[in-house]
Nucleic acid binder design. Structure first.
Lengths: 98, 98
DNA sequence: ATGTGACTCATAGTCCGTT
DNA sequence: AAACGGACTATGAGTCACA
């Protein structure tokens, strides 16, 4: 597990470039963005809600929730929070790691 | 420490309202938004960077970084990530708690 | 080195239809 | 129920110039 993760890191380092390069930064960014959509989708499904329910609860709309989960649209930070607090009934934890 | 945190939660529950109410959701949202500015500022200062350096590294501009840290502006999620990855050289960890 | 008003144009978010 | 596409536009993210 730990081994695999390390291998993946090495693989990415070699294939995409090491941390610090432009290309790698772009990759990491896309990787995180990808995670955001999945994160929202998983949280929603765990709570047994439909995209429409989340949309209504958070005062957005269902086609937008869909696009968010599929990473087809960007989000304002405040909107992301509203979706998570009001739509999913959770709260967003953020931190910066080095 | 743990005690104090619990007390703070109780205090907020009583003063602002419990989770689930509109007022509380709004409070939590503002509270998190507030934390974001501070989070960025602390990370930046720990790394010994100026707002201008972070701005240049992340392809934004210094007046915007200032406004972000002061919570005077919202951010696109993708921009926030660029600032953290390219500007601060870290990476953004996000999770949803219930 | 940071903060702030004034500005603008990209785009977040909506709406509607189709699969 | 979810994805997906496309067309739309009010708004506010991000910039610039200045203190």
């Amino acid at each position: 597990m730990e081994k695999n993760l390390t291998s993946l890191s090495d693989f990415i380092d070699q294939e995409i470039g090491v941390k610090g390069t432009k290309k790698r930064a772009k990759f990491d960014e896309g990787f995180e963005a990808f995670k955001l959509g999945v994160l929202i989708q998983q949280a929603r499904q765990e709570r047994g809600l439909t995209q429409e329910q989340v949309a209504d609860l958070s005062g957005t709309n269902k086609s937008y929730i869909s696009k968010l989960e599929k990473d087809l649209k960007d989000v304002r930070f405040s909107t992301l929070q509203r979706i998570i607090t009001e739509g999913l009934g959770g709260h967003l934890e953020i931190s910066i790691k080095f």
